[in-house]
Amino acid sequence: MVENDASEDSKKGMKVGGALGEMFRTAFQRPITKKYPFGAAQVAERFRGKLDIDPVKCTGCGVCEAVCPASVIQMVHTGTRKVGTREIETKRPTFDLYTCISCGQCVDDCRFEALRLTHEFELATVDKKSLVMDKALKVVN
């Protein structure tokens, strides 16, 4: 036999339908539901959405590739460049946003401020490949 609750709460009177008053109050308030697909969605100032790159600022250093936890960023070879007497490889980043978790670590670590997170979040697609971002190609080459 379980003892009955003797705490402070059980001494207060119980009632059936204690929520009725609040229910009618709520019924005449504005519903909380946001009609999202039919209206704009509000996101916070700091919201981390789709990743975007400024190809002009990007130097192809590859730090973002090293820090990306989701292996979104792959550096691809674009050619060679002469620095003094040495020939060094030039690279550009490509982004597979399908696996991107929008953590923003690459943005934090980019010294050239080439990366940023936009407020865009509607990334649903039927084609995985359409999420591969290879912006740097057009400008660099």
Partner: peptide, 8 residues
């Protein structure tokens, strides 16, 4: 029911 619960 929805309106009483704050929904649409």
């Amino acid at each position: 029911t929805a309106r009483m619960q704050g929904r649409i």
